[in-house]
Design a protein around this nucleic acid. Structure first.
Lengths: 350, 350
DNA sequence: GCAAAAATTTAAAACGTTTTCATTCCTCGA
DNA sequence: TCGAGGAATGAAAACGTTTTAAATTTTTGC
């Protein structure tokens, strides 16, 4: 072992640079090394001797060196940013927030950050995605509320831009996604109503253009047909219908003799609206009718009488989305990643 | 008028650069100008002749030039990013999302983007802010849920980092903020209950460490004292208490003979929990007791019987926050900016 | 011992802007 | 006709990093 090499005399002059902020050059000067070597040492490149690597790391820590993201970005072309398209629909139960929490969790300890790009400011939903891609504002993109033939999926696929979506499409090529098993949600929800003795069930569907509307419809219809009972699908309202309109609709329908006595509500607001509308019509929950609702919060669990709920954990979904997008960015040719999250059913099934 | 100068022969050779993406140099080559001139023309610097400016702009548009943010950022030291600290408390009614929408609205048409920094990943709330400042991740910071002596405010003030918060502090120096007039909310809410004939009112307070808790308390107490009626302030629960715990608390209190017959609920979830808890105790809304609630959504307006609400428009607040932070960034020495937003009262006052 | 190979380290160019300072080209007054 | 002064443009350096290719030192094989 020779004694550790140290800065030769007279080399550590120009320590403090222009604006005091330590850079690679600062470290290089202190250590008596070339900037190149320092850069390599910090990024743990293989050719650097262990001793040098350790020394550089130590100095960096001591003087509080932080790499300049702008310079890294300029040089490498990587932004270290992933973006999420904030959707324009009424976000009453913190849909986006929950997902963002999950994503942020997955991004922790990485060098990535999350920027939000609200697509409600663009005229079409694909425009916001296009903006991200063209301006290279991020290395990857996450978005929600997919449609069967989603213009965003096509755009991103064509441009080879890394992405993952919450929800599936029918895009011919398989694409990465995280989705919730809405078929099972609707299937088990419907069976629950039937098990409770309800004989005419209705479902509030999401807007028809969204893929998961089909999944819910499919689950619903499967259970209904298996049991051979009556059903109803309101045509004039959907999950995005303002709550008061939905309430009025439910209320006027409830007056008729052949009104449904069971409701599937894939969201908190729709559940409240249905309860409210039925109440207007003089019907009592758990007596005259039942509800099974999907909730992403814990809002409904406190209602009285208790509503049967199936939970969707959006933060967990966000965490998967973030994790899988990072994989995708670092290895675009990896085999296709997708995930179907199981519903958490808060009532006895069987 | 001489004929417009045009690229001299043989100068427009190296149009397409390395990776096809047009840069200032591409434009310069096409226009037969220096990169410097093009840069100035695009940023509408004064010394450039009108004709050159227009020509450069036209070429830029034609070839689809987009400035490289990383290079701009490296050179100028400005990130063109503002950050918002996502708070860790249960976001059941889309608090952050609404604010972010507003901010994004204010940022549209500017060159700024919004990144979210969840502070729930740090151990202390000031840590996330520190991280932003130290890594120079943004040019300005927005955060919510301020405390009277807020460590974030102090940190940002000391470092001279531009910021604005949603809510006030008691920091000795005046600081920029957007706040909601919670005094008036509580005052008018309490008066409404009294006007309805209620004789013992209670208020669910926010966590005591938050500044706006004091404002609500003050408004409440003022109205109560003016009317000289009884009141009650639950000590063991607050606005962040899980809904089921709050419900149980309300329920057990409702059993006593001296239970309150009026409640101020500064949030949707607490309102639902109170209704639910009272219902457990056999009390009927609008008959045995009344509620006045603050809502940031339209969730409660559909309840039956109707609950009196006072609305807080968080998207509008976000828009103000964004706008004012930008002002702050561009002119740090501008006189102090603050804004107190009036409650929107959805019942007749008098 | 000596050339070749391996292990380290380094110089220099590049990423795409902005900015400082110089240069050119007019116009105009004396 | 000359130079001053202003308007318009340009050359070059700089921001802080990564990367290519080359240089240096050390190790190895024989």
């Amino acid at each position: 072992m020779t004694e550790p090499s140290r800065p030769r005399r007279g080399e550590n002059l120009d320590i403090t640079h222009k604006r005091g902020k330590p850079t690679l050059r600062t470290i290089a000067t202190i250590a008596g090394l070339a900037v190149t070597t320092v850069s390599r040492a910090l990024s743990d490149a293989p050719q650097i001797s262990l001793e040098t690597r350790q020394r550089v790391h130590r100095i960096a820590r001591e003087i509080g060196y932080l790499p300049d993201r702008a310079a890294q970005r300029l040089k490498t072309g990587r932004t270290n940013v992933i973006a999420i398209l904030l959707d324009s629909h009424e976000e009453v139960v913190g849909f986006s927030t929950s997902i963002m929490y999950g994503i942020a969790k997955a991004l922790k300890e990485t060098s990535y950050h999350l920027v939000v790009a609200p697509n409600f400011l663009s005229t079409t939903d694909v425009e916001a995605a296009e903006y991200i891609v063209r301006n290279h504002l991020a290395d990857g993109l996450i978005f929600t509320r997919t449609e069967p033939l989603d213009a965003r999926v096509r755009l991103l696929f064509e441009t080879g831009f890394p992405f993952i979506c919450h929800g599936r499409t029918e895009f011919s090529t398989p694409h990465p996604y995280v989705d919730y098993d809405n078929f099972t949600f609707a299937y088990e929800a419907t069976r629950r109503l039937i098990a409770k003795g309800r004989r005419k069930v209705a479902v509030i569907l999401p807007p028809k253009r969204l893929t998961f509307c089909q999944h819910i419809l499919h689950g619903f219809m499967t259970a209904v047909r298996e049991a051979g009972i009556a059903y109803e699908i309101p045509e004039t309202v959907d999950l995005d219908t303002p709550a008061d309109v939905l309430r009025d609709c439910i209320c006027s329908r409830a007056a008729a003799p052949d009104a449904p006595d069971g409701f599937i509500c894939p969201g908190e607001v729709s559940a409240l609206a249905v309860i409210s509308g039925m109440s207007d019509a003089g019907r009592t929950l758990a007596v005259d009718y039942d509800i099974v609702a999907k909730e992403t919060s814990r809002l409904l669990t406190q209602l009285q009488p208790k509503v049967d709920t199936i939970h969707e954990d959006l933060t967990a979904a966000g965490e998967d989305l973030g994790r899988m997008l990072l994989q995708r960015i670092n290895n675009p040719d990896a085999e296709d990643l997708h995930l179907l999250l199981p519903p958490q059913i808060n009532f006895p099934i069987g």
